[in-house]
Amino acid sequence: MKISFLQRFSSWIILLLGILYFALPLLGTFEFSLRMKRGEYSLEAYRVILSDSRFQQTFSFSVMMALLTIVLGVLLIVPTAYWVRLKLPRWRPIIEFITLLPLVIPAIVIVFGYIRLYNTSSWLPLTGSSFGTDILMVCGYTTLALPYMYRAVDTGLRTLDIATLTEAAEILGANKITILFRVILPNVTVAILSGAFLTFAIVIGEFVFAALLNRPAFGPYMQLVGANRAYEPAALAIIAFGITWMCMGLIQLVTRLQKHTRIQAPR
C-alpha cells in the first residue's frame, strides 16, 4: 500500500517529538551532572559518588540482593513452568494468573503485608533480625519479578518440544531432576538470562521494599543523596540509566547469540 507524503511527514513529526521528549531529560541530567565545579564541565560529581563509601556499600548490597533474587526466581519458576507445561496444562491459567498479580497489587501494599505478617511478634518473626529481613526482601523481590521471569521462561519453553525432550531423556535412563537440570535448563538459558537481566534492572534501584524494611540498599541511598545534594543525584541518575541500558543490551545480545546457535543446531 502506498504511503502518502502527508502520512510520512506526520510520522516523522511524531517521531521527532518523541525523540525530543526522551532525549531532553537524559541530556538535561547529563549536562547537570557535569556542572559541579563552577564555570567548567567536570566529572567531579561522579568522582564524589563513586568514592563515597556509602555508595559502594549500598550498591554491593543491592547487587547481592539482585543475584539472590535471580537464583531464587530461577529455582522457583523454571521447575514450575516446566512441570505445568509437561503435566498440568490445565493449571496454566491459575499459575499464570498468580504470576500476574504483582502487576495489579501495588508493591507498597505487599510490603505493608510483610511488615504486618512477619513482624517481631508474629509466628514467623523475619523482620526481627537483619538476616531475616534480607530473606524477606529477596522473597519480595522475587514476587515483584514473578510476572517477567515467568513469562520469559514460559515463552522459552514453548519453543521447545518439552514432552519429546523429556521422553528422549527418560528412555536414556535419566530421572526427572536430571532431565530438568541437564536437558531443559540449558535449552532455556537465553530465556532465563533475559528474565535475570530484567530482574537485575528492577531490583538494583528498588526503593519501596528497601526503605520500608529499613535495609541499606541502593534505592534509599539514591533518595537520600537526592534530598541532600545538588549535582550528585544527576550523576546517580546517569549511572542508573547506564545500568538499565546495560541490562537491556545484554538481553539483546544473548537473544542474538541464541539465533546463531539455533541455526547451527537444527531442532
Binding site: 531529560p25 538535561g28 541530567t29 539514591m222 544527576a234 546517580l236 542508573a240
Partner: peptide, 25 residues
C-alpha cells in the same frame, strides 16, 4: 525496553535536572 524500566528515584532526578527550577529546559 530501557526507558520502561527506568522508573523510580533516578527518573525523578532526571526530571528535576531537566524541568526543575534550574533544569536544562
Amino acid at each position: 525496553g530501557v526507558a520502561s524500566n527506568f522508573a523510580g528515584v533516578p527518573l525523578a532526578f532526571a526530571f528535576i535536572a531537566t524541568l526543575g527550577r534550574v533544569g536544562l529546559v
